[in-house]
Nucleic acid binder design. Structure first.
Length: 242
DNA sequence: ATAAATGTTAAGAA
DNA sequence: CTTCTTAACATTTA
């Protein structure tokens, strides 16, 4: 799950804030007794981290590749890691990493690197980008300390939109292209959010998991790139190394 | 139906 | 002391 999806999760959880949790349970290693009988005070995300603040404790959820949450619609034959029972409503979290956090832990987060946060600081991101001249842009975009919340879908779509090759190094980009990279990442995050909310995310993929480039109709290259070796989908003809 | 994929972290190796 | 490699986890989609 990428950052914008968690912003949507926070919105979906709003109706549950301050309501009494009748029972909390699940397979995660958590102090459920500190949650049962209390309520959710607020939620927020930092990149791909989903932060839940309860009255007496606080937890961080990471959905990784396959995690999900459901409201009043449990999965069959699957034990939730965390279940919040509100009486008439129930929230379920599946296959995610959940960890109890110390009070005040959110102060350790730098929200200015979160693409979806109000605090997002493009200038700071640009400086961080320029501080890694030898990094390939595919790796750079996935760097959660610079573009927190950006995942592999956003990486591939952002680079295609820029017509930028995933293997270009920062030092081979003009200052204007470096600036464009930062802007495109933030812009794509907003589009991702909008499309995901409208249930039209995949419909708007241009290069991700495509076989044909929508621009030149040539073949799409699918290969691991950079140190991270995450799969990049790109057009060798349209996406330039500068 | 087999494999790849919206991701991270811990442990051990170099 | 870094930096790299591998494995582990877990589920849907093509």
């Amino acid at each position: 799950m990428e950052g914008p999806s968690l912003v949507i999760a926070s919105e979906e959880f709003k109706p549950f804030l301050k309501r009494k949790i009748v029972a909390a349970s699940g397979t995660a290693k958590l102090p459920f007794e500190k949650i049962t009988g209390t309520s959710l005070v607020k939620t927020r995300s930092w990149g791909k981290h989903f932060l839940l603040f309860f009255t007496k404790t606080q937890v961080r959820i990471h959905f990784l590749m396959f995690g999900s949450y459901r409201i009043n619609n449990p999965r069959e034959n699957r034990e939730p890691k965390l279940e919040l029972d509100y009486g008439n409503d129930t929230i379920y979290f599946y296959s995610c990493a959940i960890k109890e956090m110390p009070k005040g832990f959110e102060k350790e987060y730098d929200f200015s690197v979160d693409l979806m946060a109000e605090e997002w600081d493009a200038k700071k991101a640009l400086q961080a980008v320029r501080g890694k001249p030898n990094a390939e842009v595919a790796d750079l975009l996935m760097d959660q300390t610079i573009f927190s919340g950006l995942g592999n879908i956003m990486k591939n779509e952002t680079l295609f939109r820029l017509l930028m090759h995933p293997k270009v190094r920062v030092k081979d980009l003009t200052p204007a292209r470096q600036r464009a990279l930062v802007k495109a990442a933030a812009d794509y995050a907003q589009d991702f959010y909008k499309w995901k909310k409208a249930g039209a995310l995949k419909r708007n993929w241009k290069i991700m998991r495509k076989r044909i480039c929508p621009r030149c109709e040539g073949p799409v290259t699918k290969a691991p790139t950079g140190k991270l070796q995450r799969i990049s989908h790109y057009c060798e003809r349209c996406q330039v190394k500068a």
